[in-house]
Amino acid sequence: MITNYHRPQTLEETLELLKQPDTLPLGGGTVLNSPKYKEREISVVDLQALDLNHIRQTGYILEIGATATLQQLLEDAHTPAALVQAIRQEATLNIRNAATAAGTLVACDGRSAFATMMLAFDAKLTITGDSTSTVSLTDYWALRPGGLITRIDIPLNVKSAYQQVARTPADLPIVAAGLAQWSSGRTRLALGGYGKTPMLAMDGTEADGLESAASNAFHEAADQWASAEYRSDVAATLARRCLEAAQ
């Protein structure tokens, strides 16, 4: 339950407000309006006035403002096709019009198509607090550092692909695979559809062993949606399809 609402005009004011107990940033509101927060008294800090919703290309980097919506990102001409595909799978149009890029990454679980593809891109998060730092998405999920995400960067000079298997075309994935490959041969494979966050199955100097890495990453990935054996087999297949699609 939201008991206090703040709409600061500067980043400095925002950071001071967020230091208060039980105070959370408000982007699109799709997370804070969920049942998870119905029984909890919280204060919210609206980020709308901070101009953090930009999307722009800087050299070979796509800079995504923290409060840019998923729909903005989907419609931007610079967004890689694989990420557009993942965003379409992430949520319906109404949700995409409200959900922010940063909020989605903070609140996601392992079945997030968007987060899976961002992990494949080795997304870098700029976090502002008492100081400003840049962390990988993997480190952010592991450490949950304090401060406010203000920007997310992904590379544009890579080949990429996204594949998933779900019960229906519009459903969340049971198995998802996102792949990014650099001109140097570096290959990153992220898997989704299971667990608390998507997982990095491979970050190698080349693509050799990609299918084995995918299969091994999901060898214990059993839940109510699928067995580990099924996920392991499908992950290897999707990894191969991603590599073929990225060529």
Rank of each mutant, 00 (worst) to 15 (best):
I95N: 10
L93S: 14
S112Y: 00
H78T: 05
A81C: 09
M118F: 11
V84G: 13
I87T: 07
V84F: 11
T104E: 11
E90R: 08
T126G: 05
A101S: 14
N97F: 06
K124P: 10
R111L: 02
D122G: 11
T79F: 05
F114R: 03
D76S: 01
D109K: 07
L74P: 00
T104I: 05
F121D: 03
R88T: 08
T79K: 06
A115L: 03
Q85R: 15
N94D: 12
T116S: 04
T69F: 02
R96C: 09
T79Y: 05
L105F: 05
V84I: 13
T126K: 13
F121A: 05
T69V: 01
T126M: 10
A98D: 08
L70I: 03
D76W: 02
L73W: 05
R111P: 01
T69Q: 03
F121R: 02
A107S: 14
L74S: 00
G103T: 07
V106S: 05
A113I: 03
F121W: 02
I87C: 06
A107W: 02
T100K: 07
A101V: 15
L83F: 10
T126W: 09
L93A: 15
A102N: 10
N94I: 15
D122E: 13
E75W: 07
A120S: 09
I127G: 02
G103Y: 12
L105M: 15
D109T: 12
L105P: 06
A123V: 02
R88K: 14
A101I: 13
L93Y: 14
A123C: 01
P80R: 06
A107L: 06
I127K: 03
A98N: 11
P80C: 10
A99V: 13
Q72R: 00
A98L: 14
L73E: 02
N94E: 10
D122K: 12
L73S: 03
R96E: 06
Q89K: 15
C108A: 13
F114L: 06
A113K: 00
G103K: 12
T126V: 10
T69I: 01
P80M: 07
L119T: 01
E75F: 07
A98V: 05
D122H: 11
M117Q: 14
G110S: 03
C108N: 11
V84N: 13
N94M: 12
Q71W: 02
A123M: 02
D109S: 09
D76T: 01
R96M: 07
Q89G: 13
D76H: 12
R96W: 09
D109P: 00
A120G: 04
T69A: 02
A82R: 09
V106W: 02
E75Y: 08
C108Q: 12
L93H: 15
N94G: 08
K124M: 11
S112I: 05
T79R: 07
A120D: 03
R96A: 06
I127P: 11
M117G: 01
L93W: 13
A102M: 11
L70D: 01
A86N: 09
A102P: 12
Q72T: 06
C108E: 08
F121Y: 11
